[in-house]
Nucleic acid binder design. Structure first.
Length: 465
RNA sequence: GUCCCUAUCGUCUAGCCUGGCCCAGGACACCGCCCUUUCACGGCGGCGACGGGGGUUCGAAUCCCCCUGGGGACGCCA
């Protein structure tokens, strides 16, 4: 085991979204690759907005993607006493102080600053006061001014420098006594010995003050790697109006987890011209050095393409198992039909999602099919009566319904009717499947089986008009 | 507004560090052709980009500067 320790630290205020999943994935890949440790920490210091349902949803999504953690999940809500001690320590050392300014006062100052074109910062009103009014207070970190700027070398973006006069005294404890994000993230990452923090780009601005906090607390400063954001097609931050952003929504839409993993990793990372990566490939090949520095646009079409690839090449047994719930959701009793593996085999080349596959599979189940109206009027006409009767006789005589004997039977039909294959196949397809698009007619016959196939042809004979 | 990040086809990207092999390669999408019993798959081909301006250099997508565009942050959210 190497000493690399990384973590994923979602806040449980909703489902796991695309962006979070990618961050989690990058952490996971590096941990596995370097035989390090992947820690999962639930950032629920905002007691108001955090829910157990969200925690469960996040855990479920990570499980679906195959991102198992090595330690955790740890909950920050279990650790409030640790934070309280550390805050007291800072106060005792004169590195933090109580501030009695009200939210209203602060808001007014912010607005005024913005209006004057200044960066809205806390003005330090309470920084040096010695009285202790009997009023609600927050605790602020006293930003050290012993140097003018802080620089860190981001593993993805390179060196980044912030001048300290851009920073202000941030609140580390709220009026209600709970600690804030920028404080707990430092304490926890330090206490959990995290030495590489991989997180979203939106945190670079927090990094310098966090570094100052590490120093004030006497902790070693970890390395940072800030991964770019994911945008929607309009280059705005990805949100629900761009479509589904929840990882699990894609499972419901019939996506395979490996498609999502493959897509997510290629969004902002590349390995030459390669497009297809298994988790094992990624563990071997992933590197922060090849992660791009600019934000990327989420492209559902490419995800769909990857999904069709993985369905096309997927294991039949597994796909059958994954497909079953989608069929059941449509009210289909899979026991009343052919072997699911055989069904999948006929459909995997023509389905981009499991939902599509389920749609395409319904005709295999049940005694009869519902005819598509247009298909029926076009192909189930009275002048096809003779064709169907010959078809019926030839297929009846067909001992086994394998491709070879079916071909023989069709040759017979073509000979006695003088029709081309297409003229036979299309009406038969409608009789068998109810529609004009399906797997190859031989496959359909074979999978449906002799009894069902003949039954459906007989029924077609009854409805000819 | 201020600060930070960023910039190759519509999108994801290779190339950039170590200038010439790049009148820029791959993938998705799109278009056409082929294959074909339908729908698909597949094969072949096409469309399509170095944001702009200055430098440096014999030579720049590659190095430097400015501009512009895009994103992010500026919370008693994380």
């Amino acid at each position: 085991m190497s000493d690399l320790r990384v973590r994923f630290a979602p806040s449980p205020t909703g489902y796991l979204h695309i962006g979070g999943a990618r961050t989690a994935l990058f952490n996971y890949l590096l941990a596995r690759q370097q035989d390090g440790t992947f820690v999962l920490r639930i950032e629920d210091t905002d007691v108001e907005r955090s829910t157990q349902e969200s925690v469960d949803a996040i855990l479920q999504a990570m499980d679906w993607l195959g991102l198992a953690c090595d330690e955790g999940p740890f909950y920050q809500s279990d650790r409030f006493d640790v934070y309280r001690r550390k805050i007291q320590q800072l106060i005792d050392e004169g590195k933090a102080y109580r501030c009695y300014c009200t939210p209203e006062e602060l808001e007014a100052k912010r607005e005024a600053a913005m209006k004057e074109g200044r960066k809205p910062k806390y003005d330090g009103t309470c920084r040096n006061r010695s009285d202790q009014p009997d009023a609600p207070s927050v605790v602020r970190f006293k930003l050290p001014h012993d140097r003018e700027e802080t620089t860190f070398v981001d593993r993805i973006k390179g060196p980044i420098t912030f001048r300290h006069d851009e920073l202000d005294d941030l609140i580390i404890q709220r009026t209600d006594g709970t600690p804030t994000y920028n404080f707990v993230v430092v304490v926890d990452d330090a206490e959990m010995n995290i030495n590489l923090v991989i997180r979203g780009d939106d945190h670079v601005n927090n990094t310098p003050r966090q570094i100052l906090l590490y120093e004030a607390l006497g902790y070693p400063v970890p390395e940072f790697a800030h991964v770019p954001m994911i945008l929607g097609s309009d280059k705005k931050r990805l949100s629900k109006r761009h479509g589904a952003t929840s990882v699990m929504a894609y499972q419901e839409m019939g996506y395979l987890p490996e498609s999502m993993v493959n897509y997510l990793v290629r969004l902002g990372w590349s390995y030459g011209d390669e497009e297809i990566f298994s988790m094992a490939d990624l563990i071997e090949k992933f590197s922060l050095e090849n992660v791009g520095r600019a934000a990327g646009v989420f492209n559902p079409e490419k995800l769909l393409w990857l999904n069709s690839h993985y369905i096309k090449t997927g294991d039949l047994d597994r796909l059958a198992g994954l497909l079953q719930p989608f069929l059941e959701k449509k009210g289909i009793d899979v026991a009343n039909g052919p072997d699911l593996k055989a069904v999948v085999k006929t459909l995997q080349e023509r389905s981009a999602t499991l939902v599509e596959m389920a749609d395409g599979a319904v005709f295999y189940f049940g005694e009869t099919v519902d005819y598509d109206e247009k298909a029926k009027t076009k192909f189930l006409k009275n002048d096809q009566r003779e064709l169907f009767e010959i078809l019926l006789a030839q297929l009846e005589a067909c001992e086994s319904f394998d491709e070879a004997s079916l071909e023989t039977a069709f040759a017979g039909v073509m000979e006695s009717t003088g029709l081309k294959f297409g003229k036979i196949a299309q009406p038969l397809r409608v009789a068998l499947t109810g529609g004009t698009a399906s797997p190859s007619i031989y496959q359909v016959l074979e999978v449906l089986g002799k009894e069902t196939s003949l039954g459906r042809i007989k029924r077609a004979l009854e409805v000819l008009a």
